[in-house]
């Protein structure tokens, strides 16, 4: 099954898109400079701006073949713009926005098309069944309902609805785009055409990236919390209970939602909306229940405890934090 041009336009990251561009023999210089491609360039700018603003790119009605063509070309151009801004944050956000856009369209497709695109990402989906190893690669398992244990699995195959398969594909797309963009360099020409936008974005994002969590004494965190932060920063996929521990702890010592978001934002799979939702849920802003941080015994059963000397005196991470702060403050006094 070959995709038609309007399908390619909806999924411009698939193999068929590359092949189509090759076949049409149009090179990037042309698209950058030729007046007839003005619409593609405008749509590229729109893609990047919408990604940044809304976290998702809106679908566009594609009425004829020319519009499809413009849509297809706008995708590589948008990528070049993102690469030129050289902001990790933008890369992540853009990759997610493209993936979400694709998800919205995919949901409406027939099973055969979903399967074909799934296969491009190494996901074999047969009759709504996906092998657990493919599932685990892409499922957002930090969300309790996506944890493997809460799925019906038979002989290695996880039962999924079409929608859920699309959600896995979304994650695969996000991964792919993000990884490609991290290693991509934009040619200097890009700056000639989109220079204004690029420097505007650079300034805006720079301000965002140097914000720091203040007023909280990070060095006094107990080892379990330090470890969780390090894990998140290094891009490990921290399990739900780990996130829960971290958020409740930070909330209890007075960090704001923004402060907490800041920590999570350094995670490569940062998803601002979801994370914000999770944080506000746990800290009671949505649910009305403020969850307290778990005690050491619980953290231990989750395998997240890495005790040090001081831990012997504490049975709760908050107690550890208070003990350590007091100790440090006392020792400060001595020096004075």
């Amino acid at each position: 099954m070959e995709f038609e041009i309007c399908q390619i336009a909806r999924y411009p990251f698939i193999e068929d898109a590359k092949n189509w561009v090759k076949k049409e023999k149009i090179d990037i210089q042309e698209v950058l400079y030729e007046p007839i491609y003005e619409r593609a360039r405008a749509r590229a700018v729109e893609r990047v701006e919408q990604a940044l603003k809304y976290g998702v790119i809106k679908e566009k009605a594609l009425l004829d073949e020319i519009e499809c063509m413009m849509e297809i070309f706008s995708y590589p151009l948008a990528r070049l713009i993102v690469a030129a801004v050289e902001s990790e944050y933008l890369v992540r956000r853009y990759a997610l926005a493209e993936a979400k856009k694709a998800y919205e369209s995919l949901k409406k497709e027939e099973t055969a098309i979903i399967q074909k695109i799934a296969r491009e990402f190494g996901i074999e989906a047969k009759d709504g069944m996906v092998h657990f190893s493919d599932y685990l690669k892409f499922a957002p398992t930090w969300d309790i309902k996506w944890k493997l244990v809460n799925r019906v699995m038979d002989k290695g195959y996880v039962e999924l609805s079409n929608d859920e398969i699309c959600r896995l594909i979304q994650e695969a797309i996000r991964n792919k785009i993000q990884n490609e963009l991290f290693y991509m360099f934009a040619p200097p020409d890009i700056n000639k055409i989109f220079g204004e936008l690029i420097s505007k974005l650079k300034n805006k994002l720079l301000a965002k990236e140097i914000k720091k969590v203040e007023g909280i004494s990070e060095k006094d965190y107990p080892p379990c919390i330090k470890n969780l932060i390090a894990a998140i920063k290094s891009g490990m996929n921290v399990p739900h209970v780990g996130r829960f521990t971290l958020v409740t702890f930070l909330n209890a010592i007075g960090a704001s939602t923004e402060d907490i978001l800041k920590i999570f934002s350094s995670s490569p799979d940062f998803n601002e909306e979801k994370t914000r939702y999770q944080i506000e849920h746990i800290t009671g802003k949505i649910s009305g229940t403020v969850y307290a941080p778990p005690k050491c015994a619980t953290i231990r059963t989750w395998g997240l405890c890495f005790p040090d000397e001081l831990c012997k005196k504490a049975n709760h991470p908050l107690l550890y934090y208070r003990l350590k702060r007091r100790k440090n403050e006392l020792s400060k006094e001595k020096i004075l």
Binding site: F132, S133, K145, L148, V149, M236, V241, W302
Partner: peptide, 21 residues
């Protein structure tokens, strides 16, 4: 690591929420 942990969680019923099952 994370994916393997999901396998362990499955076998140990860690994070099992029966309302999903």
């Amino acid at each position: 690591n994370q994916e393997r942990r999901e396998i362990v969680d499955y076998i140990m019923a860690r994070g099992l929420d029966y309302s999903h099952v």
